[in-house]
Design a protein around this nucleic acid. Structure first.
Lengths: 342, 342
DNA sequence: GAACCCTGCTCAAACGGTTTACCAAGCTCT
DNA sequence: AGAGCTTGGTAAACCGTTTGAGCAGGGTTC
């Protein structure tokens, strides 16, 4: 059973393949009377014509496919929203998305990019699951969009979360409630130095703005940003002598905050009465599920994913060269912040 | 700057395009001496030849692409491991993966499948993010593999988690510790009737096997399977009069278990001393992060994803028609189970 | 009545590979 | 010497579509 092609339609409709092509691809400027158009459409439907995008792509040099290469896809669950967003935009515009997960292996990355280019993708998104600065692999086509990653030397459109701004909002929330002694549970996790540094800078900036000199004793690095690490790190801050102990904790992320909850509970501290906590990431699985629900800063994964695909498809003006777009990270107020105890 | 093609290589190497094709596609049975092969390869590398998979696919009728259409991708974070697994297998075999997220919209689903077929994918995976029985859309090519979904009328290879077996393992763990009054926090969430029913059946089976008649009072449906719902549902069981109150809780999933922890804590019950809890799903973000870490049943997302892609690519024998493969759900022992209080 | 312009198409050349059939030259065997 | 085999290739069709150039025939204009 041979596939039915444009020439079968042409034969059945008594026209040439050129006409069929003209009609089916909706070239309205071609001078084809409505009667013929209708006949072609009818025949095509009758005999079950299905187009072959390969042939079309070969001829037109546009495939309506986009490649998305990502370092990871499943490790940080909510980051997958970026991929969802990119896919949504692509689909809305009639594009199909090739998804590749390189596991951060440069050889795989190379091979994947080559395979995608061999498949004549119309564009590439280079995504990371955490905000990182990356050395772009050689041979990326111009116009490749960086998602949640900034190319070390610029030269590509890129979007990353505004970690600094998010931290400012978070810490300002605490300061406005009257806190003066605010601890920061920083990450020392391998791949996320920038995010932690930017958040720390935002933290310092707000404190200084409020006339508080950041106390180095109040920032502790958690070696691996999990609940266990957070519990331990929070512990050292909560065990500080009275008067030195922070009344609020700004946590590198929600998992660390989850650990901070545990540390507080073990010491009989009630949140937010005795201790205010704000997290980062808004992983709703943990942030909203904590008791009390955690005030945190949302990472704009969906917005970044959309932005990336939209600029790739030319639906919005790309930023000036070497300008990295900072996507706002909104504060999500829940119930873990209150004024400090008297 | 025209792309360099096979004919450029041919010209530079002083051979025909046929020879170049033969060499580059590694047809070892063709009688081409090593010297010529080497020359072709060298020239190709020198002038930066990059193959065009479209042209190749057009001719060979195989594109080395697979389409994966999924109802959702980001809602249940760890389910994305299925996609990762499928992608890993595809990549290992030199296949590229088209990812489509339909949002459960039949029109989008239709259009997406048509687009994938137009792109001449070599195969399709139809995936759901929760174990479901689905009415397959019309026009799915034979051999389409169902992932975490069973086609209502059979006819396609399919793999789903062995919810029943997982529940048996979970409840047996409790029974073996000596529990006799075991509550079940069931789900009434809209899209997951099968999973909850199968787990419930496993629960009943183990109890009966141990000579315990399941007590309808001890199963409570949580309308929406979140921590909040779980806390509420667990509360009704924990507030039962002494002697009727369960000593252990089997939870539909880890989020519900998280709520059960909270309900227990509010009532001054210590886990596992006063109450044993086992979850389901092994969402490590919550299961491993709870205090104490939660004993639960793992959903074999990665294994199912691999299985799906492997059978699609013909790397393993497909099951007999209408046979749905049940992937084992292993019990993950952590610290939330102990013998009942004396 | 010649020149020109519409209208409604068609022709055929791409696009970039793969593959089948065939060929020329040289050697071997009888 | 001629048949037959081996070696090292090549020619050309083919995959399914798009698209620029062109053409036949009728109507209009000057």
């Amino acid at each position: 059973m041979a596939r039915v092609g444009i020439k079968d339609v042409a034969r059945e409709a008594g026209v040439s393949t050129a006409t069929v092509s003209l009609v089916l691809s909706g070239k309205t400027q071609a001078r084809i009377p409505a009667a013929t158009r209708e006949r072609v459409h009818r025949v095509a439907a009758e005999i079950g014509y299905a187009p072959n995008s390969l042939a079309r792509g070969l001829r037109t040099r546009r495939t309506h496919t986009i490649g998305l290469v990502s370092d990871q896809i499943a490790t940080t669950p909510y980051a997958v929203r970026m991929i969802e967003a990119a896919q949504d935009v692509a689909r809305e515009r009639g594009f199909l998305l090739f998804l590749v997960n390189t596991g951060s292996d440069p050889a795989v990355e190379r091979a994947s990019i080559d395979a995608l280019l061999a498949h004549q993708v119309d564009g590439l998104v280079y995504a990371c699951m955490w905000h990182q600065v990356v050395e772009p692999p050689a041979g990326l086509p111009a116009g490749t969009v960086f998602l949640d990653a900034r190319p070390s030397a610029g030269g590509f459109p890129a979007v990353v979360p505004d970690d600094h701004g998010g931290a400012v909002a978070a810490v300002r929330e605490l300061v406005e409630q009257g806190h003066r002694q605010i601890g920061y549970l920083a990450s020392d996790d391998h791949p996320r130095p920038i995010a932690s540094r930017l958040r720390w800078e935002g933290y310092c900036e707000v404190l200084r703005g409020a006339g508080i000199e950041p106390d180095p004793q109040l920032v502790v690095r958690v070696p691996v940003a999990t609940a266990a690490g957070g519990a331990q790190a929070a512990g050292v801050l909560l065990d500080l002598p009275r008067g030195h102990r922070p009344t609020a904790l700004f946590c590198f992320n929600d998992r660390v905050a989850m650990g901070a909850y545990r540390a507080a509970r073990h010491r009989g501290l009630e949140i937010p009465r005795d201790l205010s906590i704000v997290g980062f990431d808004d992983q709703d699985l943990v942030a909203a599920a904590l008791d009390p629900p955690l005030t945190t800063v949302a990472l704009p994964h969906y917005a970044m994913g959309r932005w990336a695909m939209e600029t790739l498809l030319g639906l919005r003006d790309p930023p000036a060269d070497d300008d990295v777009v900072l996507m706002p990270c909104p504060l999500v107020r829940r119930d873990s912040v209150a004024p400090p105890p008297a």
